[in-house]
């Protein structure tokens, strides 16, 4: 009996946190979304109005592309790094964790330094071909920024899984005649799948909701977080902003939920 009461006590901090910082603000947000001049039509407007719909679409595509690109880079890199000892491996790994510390603003700033009007790439292409190549203030710049801070965290997760992979699995497959492609398809990727799914889901959620980088690069990149900001501050349409926020949250949450269930199934639990 006492232990049961004690268990309740242990869960109390989480319960308070959930109530105070999650449920109450979310409820308030939902009320806000429905209380504007349009009422609940705000939610319908997200799908019917081209500006909102396009923004949602662009954000979704950007997040998917970022996730796929990040997973590709990280999975290849993780397999290269796993169980391979070389000079400077520790330094390389710690360098990879460096971008984890940067806020989105700094990442955006770095993309500008790299591909902006006075950026590195622009300078080089100007002296070589006479044209100043600028990509920082576009979706591509944003994509690069997301890639920059997504790759390290995804890589570290997949690397941990790759290092746990029993090397005799690959050897067994080889003895059975499997070539490198078959080994990837049948042995390595299925083993890395849970880690890839989990890391990919977090990468996707980040790319859906990140704001700082987009804000730094340009105020006219039409991603959902920017849209929420404009609706809220410039158009002072708080209820619309709230409705979009909820939509954004829902889409990301559903994606994460699916990812979680798939990752569990992949582990054979």
């Amino acid at each position: 009996m006492t232990s049961k009461r004690f268990d309740l006590l242990l869960i109390l901090p989480l319960a308070i946190f959930t109530l105070a910082f999650l449920i109450l603000p979310l409820a308030r947000l939902a009320v806000e979304a429905g209380s504007g001049p349009g009422g609940l039509a705000n939610f319908v407007a997200i799908l019917t109005e081209a500006r909102f719909r396009n923004s949602l679409f662009v954000t979704l595509i950007l997040a998917v592309v970022t996730t796929v690109a990040t997973l590709t880079v990280a999975t290849i890199a993780a397999q290269t790094l796993a169980n391979r000892k070389f000079l400077g491996r520790g330094l390389l790994l710690s360098l990879l964790t460096f971008p984890l510390a940067f806020p989105g603003v700094v990442v955006g700033f770095m993309i500008i330094l790299f591909g902006g009007r006075l950026g590195l790439v622009g300078g080089v292409t100007k002296s070589l071909f006479g044209t100043n190549v600028i990509f920082a203030y576009s979706l591509f710049g944003l994509f690069l920024g997301y890639l920059y801070f997504s790759v390290p965290r995804v890589l570290l997760t997949i690397l941990a899984a790759a290092e746990k992979l029993d090397p005799s699995l690959v050897e067994a497959a080889r003895s059975l005649g499997a070539g490198p492609f078959a080994i990837q398809r049948d042995v390595v990727l299925p083993a890395l799948f849970p880690a890839m799914y989990t890391a990919g889901a977090l990468c996707f959620a980040t790319a859906m909701g990140a704001f700082g980088t987009a804000f730094t690069l340009a105020t006219n990149i039409d991603v959902v977080p920017m849209l929420i900001y404009t609706e809220f501050t410039l158009a002072t349409n708080a209820s619309m902003a709230a409705a979009i926020s909820i939509a954004l949250g829902l889409i990301t949450w559903v994606t994460l939920a699916i990812a979680r269930s798939h990752a569990m199934r992949g582990e054979g639990v």
Partner: peptide
Amino acid sequence: IEKRDVGMVFQSYALFPNMTVAENVGYG
């Protein structure tokens, strides 16, 4: 080794966890 036609049995068994017993046996 891929072409040497050797059968290998490992201490850890090295069975493919994403496949069934029959799929493992039939993999080669």
